[in-house]
Design a protein around this nucleic acid. Sequence first.
DNA 1: TATTGTTATACTCTATAACTATA
DNA 2: TATAGTTATAGAGTATAACAATA
Lengths: 147, 147
Amino acid sequence: MKVALDRPPSLDKASSELLLAIGQLVRKLRSQSNPNEMNLSQMSALARLEQFGPMTTADLSRAEAMKPQSMGTILASLEQDGFVHRQPHPTDGRQILFALTDKGKEERRQRGIAKRVWLAAAMAKFTPAERQTLNAAIPLMKRLGDG
Amino acid sequence: MKVALDRPPSLDKASSELLLAIGQLVRKLRSQSNPNEMNLSQMSALARLEQFGPMTTADLSRAEAMKPQSMGTILASLEQDGFVHRQPHPTDGRQILFALTDKGKEERRQRGIAKRVWLAAAMAKFTPAERQTLNAAIPLMKRLGDG
DNA sequence: TATTGTTATACTCTATAACTATA
DNA sequence: TATAGTTATAGAGTATAACAATA
């Protein structure tokens, strides 16, 4: 039986709207950046290494929906900046484990990154109820990104 | 006075989480694409033209957080595909108004675009309550993208 | 002189292809 | 033969710089 009141938008409509919102927001975020600042992919790889401990290029690339060669580039840049370091795999000579350095852990705690500063400032303009709505949606978006 | 129970995450924490979620989701979305399919920027420009009517390159670029030269490229590709057409500005000879063609309006209604199909399928796995949470967050993300 | 739009060029991020080394 | 990683190259998307036309 169909309910006429407070009908939620269709999946088609909702997914279409979400698509547009994500696109605009990511362009806005990308434009908020200081020279030599990490991009979203580098931040994401660093966060995952902190959460799950040392990982290989292949595992990280799968987790971040990216080709291994692309993840290799990202890890090379993070290594050059001293945020991660390599350690040999204990049993498989082919594999290389990447782990956070102390500098990498510190970087994760940095509040000065332009993208974070801009986003926090933008969210600060929301009402408490709006912030709660957005917070509740974050894990859902994470699941979309993982799936 | 501080409240200890059900404390919401700090703005720093929330913005950091949102940053990561957006990054992963946008990469996932970008990977969902058929040959010659529109990208998120093209979809966004098309949607805005439908919502607000004919606009100039400069206005669109401001609205979409993009440089006028970049928007010019996007509009040129949309024009080549027959989704938009040019019309002269009534009073200012420098400006060019871009408007949706019938083909462009039809494209907006297409449900077959890979990104939309993937996203709708992923959202279909959510519970009704989760879908409602996500739907409520969409206008908030739009405001973040606009601001 | 300021603004609109165009053209040319370069940078960032990610993908594809070909290769080496280990399993 | 299959998998992990590297190197080289190419593509998509956007930016910067220089320019012409109109205001």
